[in-house]
Amino acid sequence: MSRASWSLLPAIAVYAITWCWVAVSAPDRVPMHWGPAGVDRWGSRTEFLTFSLVTAGLIGALMIGLGIAASRLPASIINTPHRDYWLSPEHRPAFDGLMRTMMLDIAALILLLFAAINVIVGAGAAATNVLVIVFLLALGVVMVRPIARLYREPPRSSR
């Protein structure tokens, strides 16, 4: 199992736990949309749970699919820093692995974002600020390493 799938599996578990928690503990009427002035649309718990599950599932599946398809992309449509280095035959497998890792990490972050939304709906607006900060920190931790690797200067002997 790849390192990327290890970030995705806990995210799926966290999302499933928060989704089940909302299903059994949220009130019948929950916030569905927030605007600058606060909640501007309310809906039923069932509507929220359905929307959350379908949306998180579709976006997560799209990111996973993009990660799996990374190695099948023709070089002609790829725009990346240090293109000649990353798309050369000897470095293309590493580039494909990096893209796969990034897409699976993004899928994990999307699931964690939806889990945070579940907690906000289940616990009320009091949890909002803390969850936004935690999510942004997780985003930084998960994405900094692969992006830094992609943008750093390739070794001179490999150019």
Rank of each mutant, 00 (worst) to 15 (best):
R92K: 04
I117L: 06
I64R: 08
L49P: 09
G60I: 10
L49T: 09
N118S: 12
M1L: 14
M103F: 07
E47G: 14
I68E: 12
D28E: 15
W19G: 01
V144E: 02
A127L: 11
I117E: 03
W42G: 08
I17L: 15
L113W: 15
A11P: 03
N129A: 15
M1T: 08
A116L: 12
A126F: 00
G67C: 04
G124C: 02
A16L: 13
L53N: 03
W19P: 09
G67Q: 05
A148L: 11
V39Y: 07
P10L: 14
L98T: 08
T80H: 03
R92P: 02
L8Y: 14
R3L: 11
M63G: 05
M102R: 06
P31G: 11
M99N: 13
G60L: 10
S25W: 00
N129S: 15
H82T: 06
F95G: 07
I68F: 10
L112T: 05
L139M: 14
L139I: 07
I17Q: 10
M102C: 00
A75V: 10
L139Y: 13
D105M: 14
L8M: 02
E47P: 04
M32G: 02
S44N: 10
D96K: 06
L98E: 09
P10G: 00
G38H: 09
S71M: 05
A11K: 12
G57T: 06
S71C: 08
A23I: 00
T101P: 03
Y151T: 08
A61R: 04
W42N: 05
I78E: 04
G67R: 10
P74F: 06
M103N: 13
S76P: 00
I117H: 01
S88R: 10
A123D: 01
F114H: 13
M63S: 13
L137A: 15
L150N: 01
S71E: 15
W86H: 15
L58D: 05
L62R: 12
T55A: 14
A115Y: 02
P27K: 00
S44E: 12
T50K: 04
L137N: 08
A127S: 13
I133T: 09
H91E: 09
T50G: 13
R156E: 15
L73W: 06
N129I: 13
G122D: 01
G122I: 03
I17P: 00
S5C: 03
V141L: 06
R100A: 09
G65D: 05
R92V: 11
I147S: 08
G65N: 07
I133P: 00
P81T: 04
V144N: 01
M102L: 14
A116H: 14
W6C: 02
A123G: 00
A13H: 06
V30G: 10
L62S: 12
L136W: 05
P74M: 06
P10S: 11
D96H: 07
R159I: 01
I78F: 00
N118G: 12
F95T: 12
